[in-house]
Design a protein around this nucleic acid. Structure first.
Lengths: 227, 227
DNA sequence: CGCTGATTTGAAACAGTTCAAGCCACGTGG
DNA sequence: CCACGTGGCTTGAACTGTTTCAAATCAGCG
């Protein structure tokens, strides 16, 4: 990881569009961004470990970050794969003891790193910023609930179908997409072993899903929806 | 369900201690509670269905409320069992379209029902109330993450052991507790079929867990921890 | 051309679900 | 006071979906 650098103007632009700053006016947004610096990690760097005392929360600018927990037996469960625009660790702004999960850069990743203490102070001065954070927390809560519901209700092919449907560009009855990361990472995101993802893809071949490397083509979106 | 009634002073006291009002001064708390009335449901009443337009969020005063989603095939997945003091639906204060799950009273249940629109207005006047809601959202997010992690990492006996350890009164090396609800409800909370819970209990008999109806005794807390 | 790491495939093992009985405790009515 | 139901819980057996481990294949790249 490098030292924290001042945010560039293009980075500020990305952050302005991220959910963490949504609903704020320019002034408030600037105040919030003044609590952040940009940091760069290399692939496989650990940002922090679970239970480590938390001083920052983050928003992904580029690359991907994996949030996970380690079980007693050393096995890991992924809680989320964060893409550009996603933030994590905001839930520590108030309660703030240690991190609730470990974080692991999956690529060369550039993040905005917010100083928790500064944001906490800012909240007292400019309480409207709390609404932006609420919005971001709400979004996280909903996506985590979605994840929980799909873990409890859907089979592997259904989860994959759902991912494809929500991430593909529609083109008439057909659709296509390009995975932004390795399949093994998608597998973890969906709560599957990589082998199970692979088998799910081959099960979906029968409803017209073609996979070639990271490129995926869907012949018939409606057929996929009825899985 | 009855009409909304004014909150009694004992109900106000319960709400004051709930996480939804934590960190507020008396004035702010009163303002927040002025958006709420108390409502009473009978066992098996539906509070609302998923996707229904949302006008309220809730905090449980007594009884239990099940939050769940229905899958395409009619099967249901429980997202949370709310106990007295728990709130749900706050994530709609900002984004607020429809509910993200259905809610179902499991007992005669009394809830505080908050008017979303009023709370939204209140937020503009008294933005510090947003921090209380943030706190509550953070707590929800964490407990949902815990749930997701345990679904992905732990076997049924481990989940049950974990529940017992976090909900029992310790008494030397031993401990005990009384389940606050039916076993079938605990099963759903843990993401298991009732049969699986039953089998998990019988597996835990070998490490000194004795179950008689709702009364559970743990001979050796440490042994249970190492499951 | 021959690595290296990612992905796929196969076979076996598991964990949990489902369905179908059986059991238990409790409350009702004879 | 005792059958008789009822609802909740437990148990068994078969089955499903997923993991695990091992081996084969493939893709990109020096």
């Amino acid at each position: 990881m490098n030292q924290g650098l001042k945010l560039s103007s293009s980075q500020r632009a990305v952050l302005g569009g991220a959910s963490i700053a949504s609903g704020l006016d320019a002034d408030e947004r600037d105040a919030l961004l003044s609590c952040a610096v940009s940091v760069r990690y290399e692939s496989q760097d650990i940002l922090f470990y679970e239970a480590e005392t938390a001083h920052h929360f983050y928003c992904v600018l580029s690359g991907y970050v994996r949030l996970y927990r380690l079980g007693a037996d050393g096995r890991a469960a992924d809680l989320s794969i964060c893409e550009p625009g996603d933030s994590f660790g905001e839930c520590l702004i108030l309660s703030g003891e240690g991190y609730n999960y470990s974080a692991h850069a999956m690529d060369h990743a550039i993040l905005a790193r917010f100083d928790l203490a500064k944001v906490r102070e800012l909240l007292a001065e400019r309480p409207r910023i709390a609404t932006a954070i609420m919005r971001s927390l709400s979004r996280h809560l909903l996506s985590t609930l979605d994840c929980l519901a799909s873990d409890r209700m859907q089979t592997a092919p259904q989860r994959v179908a759902n991912y494809l449907l929500t991430h593909s560009e529609k083109d008439g009855a057909a659709a296509s997409l390009r995975l932004p990361f390795q399949k093994s990472l998608l597998a973890r995101k969906l709560g599957l072993a990589p082998e199970a993802l692979s088998r799910a893809f081959s099960a979906l071949r029968t409803v017209g899903v073609t996979v070639q490397g990271r490129a995926i083509a869907i012949d018939d979106v409606d057929a996929l929806r009825h899985i």
